[in-house]
Design a protein around this nucleic acid. Structure first.
Lengths: 235, 235
DNA sequence: CGCCTCTTTGAGCTCAATCAAGGTGTGTGG
DNA sequence: CCACACACCTTGATTGAGCTCAAAGAGGCG
């Protein structure tokens, strides 16, 4: 298979994942890669399907969703630009996607075939180190969430909003650039929609945040951070 | 640094991690490795310390503990024989342990210096694939736990006990070979000790399990599995 | 034999789940 | 342009699982 076109390479060039790598090398690492544009809610990978490609998120966002036995859904991770999704899976032959991955708002990714991972990524120590870094971040986030297990729901909601905003943060921007519904927040925290709504409505009334066109905008980051730290008991 | 002695190599030889590798190769992968025997509750790695070694669990068990802001503790993972601990950290220079690791019962590990990881492990695709497999397992377990977020506490407790027993399972043995207190179960589930005790005491009364010398022994695995599946609403 | 860890039991309370009903905004097809 | 569906948000009332607080028993070890 030929290496990636300049067009594809260009898309990935600015990612920190490939920082410092020469153009040619990136082309090789993207052998067989395709750009995919997804509309809001469109599904990239479906849980249970054979995992033949992994993806690099370029724009927008994705939710990794797992279904519970009771028919509900749990969001296990939000993937943001620069994140790789399903990469570790590539080193396990015959594996299937353990979660479904769906776009949040219009989003773009590069999908890369397993073969390219096996031939070029796995043998690249520097690249693997960066991927491991991403995984440590992801595990760390799950640990943080676990740490909040006994905290009041308001703190959990604050944590979720802040940690997502931080990942899109350029220059202290406090508006989340992807649509994030209250139901999604609930599903990621193991809470009920109504409870999340009650908390966020209260915040709206207090002028702490506002939502317009599904975009959450934090007006008073200081207040949210206070709640996150547990300084405000009631919420 | 010379490669590991035959004595050290022998200890690791039977691990599935090294399955199929020639003796010599294992010796190289264990360059600078040391066997460490830890007593119950002894700490292997302390959160915040510079991570200069990682470990391979040989016998016993370890809990990975993170402290919350409120002074409580959260157990984020139980490491069992064959597991590697802190391995991914080795590819990040200057990193510190994100959690403390403490022995549960008398336990042994091999500690391996970062240098050996960098020189020999990271470049070994087959080995890295196995390590990735371990991480996918760990993430999968966290996902499973998240899936239970809305389930009654009894189901969570059942899940924790079963999933740990399964990892030590030889031939359907249903006694957990490491000490596991109710407080530890509570800390791993984000529950209170009292609630866990109430549930497990009830099970003892019903003859579903018994505890002797800190070892949990499941007498009626069928019943526990029923609870785990949600068939028994009350617990 | 006193200390420490772990387990136990009870009482009361609270946070958030559930159930129920309704509102708002947007896209789609007749 | 209407109306119908759908996705999302909102609010209220009620309830109960599990938390907290409190007090104490049991076993092991130095």
């Amino acid at each position: 298979m030929p290496i990636a076109s300049d067009e594809i390479t260009q898309l990935a060039y600015k990612l920190s994942l490939f920082e410092g790598l020469p153009w040619e090398r990136i082309g090789v690492l993207l052998t067989g890669a395709e750009q995919k544009m997804l509309r809001h809610k469109e599904v990239l990978f479906r849980a249970g399907e054979r995992a033949e490609t992994f993806a690099i998120v370029l724009e927008g966002g994705f939710k990794l969703v797992k279904a519970t036995t009771g028919g509900e859904k749990v969001i296990v991770f939000f993937a943001t630009p620069g994140n790789v999704v399903a990469a570790l899976l590539m080193s396990i032959p015959e594996s299937v996607y353990p979660v479904s991955v769906a776009a949040m708002g219009a989003s773009t990714v590069l999908t890369v075939p397993r073969e390219t991972y096996v031939s070029h990524w796995a043998s690249d120590q520097g690249l693997m180190s960066r991927i491991h870094g991403q995984f440590l971040f992801r595990i760390g986030e799950m640990h943080d969430q676990k740490t909040l297990a006994k905290a009041p729901l308001a703190r959990k909601v604050a944590w979720q909003i802040v940690s997502l905003i931080e990942r899109y943060d350029y220059d202290g921007e406090t508006e989340l650039p992807i649509p994030l519904t209250r139901a999604e927040i609930a599903d990621s925290l193991g809470a009920s929609v109504e409870s999340v709504i009650r908390i966020m409505s209260e915040w709206s009334r207090e002028g702490i945040l506002e939502t317009s066109e599904k975009r959450i905008h934090v007006l008073r980051m200081d207040k949210i951070l206070e709640i996150l730290k547990g300084a405000v008991p009631g919420g």
